[in-house]
Amino acid sequence: MMIFDRFPVAAGTLLASVVALNFSMLAAAYGQSAQAPTSDPTNAGKAVFGKANCMGCHKWHGNGGGGYGGDALSLRKTDLTRDQIIEVVGCGRPGTGMPFFTRGAYDEVKCHDMNRQDAGAQMPPEGGMFLRSKDIEAVADYVIAHIKGAGEPTYAECIAFFSSSSRVCDVYKTQAQKPDDATASRGKGQ
């Protein structure tokens, strides 16, 4: 299974950032699960998407995109199946910056029929946290339900993802949704 990024980055690029992420995102995940509506069965997967810092490269919307870290795959345009997503999250993508999130991958758990020695320089970086298989399935379900094939990101999607007072979603508002005083209101008060 070698449907890799358009320009993969060297293994390990993302390791430290993802490692460093651990404690701050844990706190975010606690807050998030408290606020999230319980009706959507993929909310658990959304929390994994946040706490494992998938958004550090794929962005909240999953479109990835180029930049200093190389080009993370667009999960919106991906052809990967649920099973393939589960495999990639667990094992990472050899030769790219996509980390593996299964404890013991390439050691006691064989990935792509390789161990660490077989992978050599293609060995993907280790994720900032390990995910249980239940979590990996949950994040795959979330990607399938909310991201894969979703077209361009929308304001409604963004608000659903962040459910916060941040202005991060404003850019997705259509002209009609923007209040006339959007610019003027910025910078006033604390």
Binding site: F7, V9, G65, G66, G67, Y68, G70
Partner: peptide, 8 residues
């Protein structure tokens, strides 16, 4: 991002 590529 509008970088036209990326470093490794």
């Amino acid at each position: 991002f509008w970088t036209g590529g990326g470093p490794s």
